[in-house]
């Protein structure tokens, strides 16, 4: 059984600057922030390392961090742009009985995170849901299509993003109340 601090040290020694930060002084489970372009390697290590043995991906969630940057143009009208999306991986090791949360932060403009489907098969549909709802693209995912919304849903419309606006109609049916 390893503490989150020990897990962080092990990862830091293995991956260096790909591992950004450990957040501990929070009311929820401590999490480790990593760069989105190396999640597959990190996941493979977490799964295979004999000290860690994270054999179970409990849940993978896509989150809109709701942190857009306010910009004012010359006339003084404010507009929101940028911000980040995150992917949270809740991991559990059944043989060693320890847990950790990994968070990968990516830009909202072009959200790209490596898929961990090759490490945990569970991630397949979870990543499709994160793509469906907040529009995070997973590199090397075998079938990144919508999972809950209809296939003909507007391609650039992701309903769980904070700046989402309901369209008027879907297939001739009025959506607003």
């Amino acid at each position: 059984m390893k503490s989150s601090k020990e897990i962080f040290e092990i990862l830091k020694a293995e991956f260096g600057d790909k591992i950004l930060e450990l957040k501990e002084d929070i009311p929820v489970d401590p999490y480790i922030i990593v760069t989105p372009d190396s999640t597959e390697k990190i996941a493979r290590f977490l799964h295979d390392s004999s000290d860690l043995q994270f054999d179970s991906l409990m849940v993978l969630s896509g989150v809109d961090d709701n942190n857009p940057v306010k910009t004012k143009d010359e006339e003084g009208t404010e507009s929101l742009s940028g911000g980040t999306l995150s992917v949270y991986y809740h991991l559990y090791s059944i043989p060693l009985n320890h847990k950790i949360v990994i968070r990968a932060v990516t830009e909202k403009e072009n959200p790209m995170v490596q898929s961990v489907e090759s490490v945990w098969k569970t991630a397949d549909w979870h990543e499709r849901e994160a793509f469906d709802m907040v529009g995070i693209r997973f590199e090397n995912h075998p079938d990144l299509t919508r999972i809950l919304l209809p296939y003909d849903w507007d391609e650039s419309s992701f309903p769980l993003r904070k700046d989402y606006k309901n369209p008027e109609f879907y297939q001739g049916m009025k959506i607003p109340y």
Partner: peptide, 20 residues
């Protein structure tokens, strides 16, 4: 009947089956 608890934030819910 009318969308029920999803009437405001249900992006995926038809607000009453009498629309179809």
């Amino acid at each position: 009947n009318c969308g029920g608890p999803y009437w405001e934030h249900g992006y995926h819910v038809l607000k009453g089956v009498d629309r179809v």
